[in-house]
């Protein structure tokens, strides 16, 4: 087993500036195959820039990056065969129906059975009832589910999720988390960026904090926790959070949401 096969993503000394603004100042990290890696950082930390470089949408000024063993600069076409990108905003075609969106992506990935692939994903993401409706009538959560479903077409070994739950309600957020966990369970490598600490805590087996253009820490949650002095034991009365209350009242299982729309 070579390192090339063990590591799904290898990033060394990545630098990128926009004009005079140095967004990335030497970013290094690796992501193991089948892992969920969270890139944590505040707005403007450069998370999206890293994702865009890894998905061949941007060229770095310096440094190298390999995805699934392929160099993002020299073997961009092979990288694109290996990845799927789910950007910050659901990249779906509003004028097409949900099913048409999935068929479109399946055709562009040159699959032989686009209709079948679409129907399977609609089923899996509880979108079958809404399949024939235009996406412009979907709720934010449905849109995001469709967006992620589109990214799974062709079973790419590496998936980038750029702030997948920003702007979603708590239920939709839990649905997305569920999907991400299932993906990793099947052996897909997931790199997700987030500004929510609890999201990284919930999902990731490794967390890196991107701050002022560099990775300042990188480790498992327990490793990161060990960086601070040992916790003091205090007596705290455990009050339900507003999120617990909200989810208890409206039902947290996230089913039966197909009828939900923005309208």
């Amino acid at each position: 087993m070579t390192t090339r096969q063990a590591q799904a993503i290898q990033v060394h000394g990545l630098e990128k500036s926009y004009g005079g603004l140095r967004v990335l100042r030497g970013v290094d990290f690796t992501v193991a195959r089948g892992g969920i890696f969270a890139l944590l950082g505040s707005n403007g930390a450069g998370k999206t820039t890293v994702v865009k470089i890894l998905s061949t949408l941007l060229k770095p000024d310096a440094g190298t990056a390999r995805v699934n063993g392929f160099d993002v600069a020299a073997q961009a076409a092979d990288v694109r065969e290996s990845i799927s990108l789910t950007g910050q905003f659901a990249a779906v075609d509003e004028i097409l129906s949900g099913r048409e969106n999935l068929v479109l992506v399946a055709r562009l990935r040159h699959l032989g059975n686009p209709g079948e692939v679409a129907d399977d994903l609609l089923e899996r993401f509880s979108l079958t009832d809404a399949a024939a409706r235009r996406v412009s009538t979907y709720s934010g959560g449905m849109r995001r589910r469709l967006d992620i479903a589109m990214s799974l077409i062709g079973d790419p070994p590496v998936i980038f999720l750029d702030e997948p739950t920003t702007g979603l309600d708590p239920q939709a957020r839990i649905e997305v988390w569920q999907v991400v966990k299932e993906l990793a369970a099947q052996g897909t490598t997931v790199l997700l960026t987030t500004q929510y600490l609890d999201e990284a805590e919930q999902l990731a087996d490794r967390i890196a904090i991107l701050h002022e253009g560099r990775i300042i820490v990188n480790g498992t949650l327990s490793e990161l926790k060990r960086l601070l002095p040992p916790a003091e034991i205090e007596y705290v009365e455990k009050q339900p959070t507003l999120e617990d209350v909200f989810l208890a009242l409206v039902g947290a299982d996230g089913k039966d949401r197909n009828a939900g729309t923005n309208a």
Binding site: S55, L57, I83, R109
Partner: peptide, 8 residues
């Protein structure tokens, strides 16, 4: 961007 990041 989705199309550009796909093997098309």
């Amino acid at each position: 961007e989705r199309f550009q990041s796909m093997p098309t």
